[in-house]
């Protein structure tokens, strides 16, 4: 049974590239275009890895992460935050909310894939 990845971003092109990368890496991929969709997908079945954009309209990535961690079923999910504003204060906030990694855009695709793989092997 393959590991499942949920990609959440409001930029369609970024979603497309992440979807492609994760599929090529052999994961099962689901996508969400905003915070609401993401929470709905998580509620259906929590993924193994959540690739989560921080800056989204309405509900941002921090909130999604917080709600995910509040749900006991979501504790096992690995969360990788993606952000285009690489400030230290934000990184700390993300990690404090329970994110496992914090990646600044634009990212290296190889590193990202390697990181996700490593994360899944650890836990």
């Amino acid at each position: 049974m393959g590991k499942r990845v949920l990609v959440v971003d409001d930029e369609p092109n970024i979603v497309l590239s992440l979807e492609f990368l994760m599929k090529k890496a052999g994961f099962e991929v689901e996508v969400a275009r905003n915070g609401q969709e993401a929470l709905a997908a998580i509620a259906r079945r929590p993924p193994d890895v959540l690739l989560l954009d921080v800056m989204m309209p309405e509900m941002d990535g921090f909130e999604v992460c917080e709600r995910l961690r509040a749900d006991p079923r979501g504790r096992a999910t690995k969360v990788v935050m993606l952000t285009a504003r690489g400030r230290d204060s934000e990184r700390q906030r993300g990690l404090a909310l329970g994110a496992d990694a914090y990646v600044t855009k634009p990212f290296s695709t190889r590193d990202l894939v390697a990181r996700v793989k490593a994360m899944l092997e650890e836990g």
Binding site: E11, I14, P106, T109
Partner: peptide
């Protein structure tokens, strides 16, 4: 500057990702 940088990084992310995808595949 952070706001401007966010707006710049977003298209850059797509450009870099797809360029790398094309290179690697």
């Amino acid at each position: 500057i952070a706001t401007v940088s966010h707006e710049l990084r977003t298209p850059l992310t797509s450009i870099r990702s797809f360029s790398e995808i094309l290179l690697d595949h």
